[in-house]
Design a protein around this nucleic acid. Structure first.
Length: 314
DNA sequence: TCTCCTCGAGATCT
DNA sequence: CTCGAGGAGA
């Protein structure tokens, strides 16, 4: 199991905040490993108003390339006499304090800052954060993309052409405040909007036969089938449909009336013990008790359903 | 019905 | 990274 990197990193929140700190950084590239911070911007917001700001250009170890200068407008000359991160890192840490951080795809900024603060100051950036990219994905799925600029335009917020930290903070916090208004108008809250949905749409009862031509001599006719594990060749729903179209029945779980347990793959399932799922172990117990139940692998199931000849062509 | 898990697909940041 | 789909188990 891969060890968790940045283990003290804060949690991602979806909240309607009265007080927070917007952050944005400019860097020499996208890689936290190889690229460097060249500008930090932050705005403290309270009740929708800017109450404090922090803006600092930072001198990187390596030169800024042309692409970044063109993108941000930040040149090597501009940072030549600026402090290195190690000299101003503490100022930034003090500025944000323990406030909740907010930004567009803010994981990008947090990861850069987390690593830099740890390396230079031997401290952990533990602040919780709000990523407004999550908001726009939820609210504006119809837009061609959810880049800050696109979202700002959609919300009639003016955004300047240059990618500079403080300017982007301005746009970001305005986008957040506007999106909060939209959520309020929907008579919901961010918490409700991001509440995990129950996506268990697969209920065996919902699967009905698409034919009434049944072969009453088929081994699965009038039988009760259950599944365990992930099937290789089709979604479980399709397999259940096959059973039902033969005139069999399906259940979500293994019961006293189950006749066939079809076993798929569960190599991926780390919680599995002795290579057998609980359904399989339950089935073995029922068989010992004399139940008319067979445990069959996926391949055998296809032989039964489709016939030997078709099986080879799958 | 609820919580926990895994995987694959799809974006966004400079 | 985040989400949704789809599993298991209680």
């Amino acid at each position: 199991m891969p060890r968790k990197i940045r283990k003290f990193k804060g949690k991602s929140l979806a909240k309607d905040l009265a007080e927070y700190t917007v952050i944005d950084i400019e860097t020499t590239g996208l890689s936290t490993e190889y690229d460097e911070i060249i500008e930090i911007g932050a705005l403290k917001i309270k009740d929708g108003q800017v109450i404090d700001s922090y803006s600092q250009l930072v001198k990187p170890k390596y030169r800024i390339d042309e692409f970044i200068t063109k993108l941000t407008g930040i040149t090597n000359e501009m940072v030549a006499d600026k402090p290195k991160f190690i000299d101003i890192g503490m100022d930034f840490v003090n500025f944000i304090g323990n406030s909740i951080l907010l930004g567009q795809n803010v994981n990008f900024d947090i990861n850069f800052l987390y690593d830099r603060i740890y390396r230079d100051l031997n401290m952990h950036l533990e602040n919780d954060f709000v990523d407004i990219l999550r908001f726009s994905r939820k609210l504006f799925p119809e837009l061609k993309n959810r880049k800050l600029k696109t979202v700002a335009k959609h919300l009639n917020i003016e955004s300047i052409t240059s990618h500079r930290a403080i300017a982007d903070c301005e746009v970001t916090y305005k986008c957040y405040e506007e999106q909060l208004k939209i959520i309020k108008n929907m008579e919901t809250t961010p918490e409700l909007l991001f509440k995990k949905k129950h996506s268990h749409t697969l209920d065996a009862k919902d699967i009905v036969a698409t034919t009434n031509q049944f072969d009453q001599n088929h081994i699965l006719y009038n039988s009760v089938c259950a599944f365990t594990g992930k099937l290789e060749k089709m979604p479980r729903k399709e397999a259940m449909q096959l059973v039902v179209n033969i005139g069999g029945k399906c259940g979500n779980s293994l019961t006293k009336s189950t006749n066939f347990l079809i076993v798929g793959n569960f190599d991926y399932w780390s919680g599995i013990k002795n290579g057998k799922s609980s359904k399989q172990k339950k089935a073995e117990k029922y068989i010992l008790e004399g139940q008319d139940l067979k445990v069959i692998p996926e391949d055998v199931f296809y032989d039964m359903v489709l016939g030997e000849s078709d099986h080879n062509n799958l």
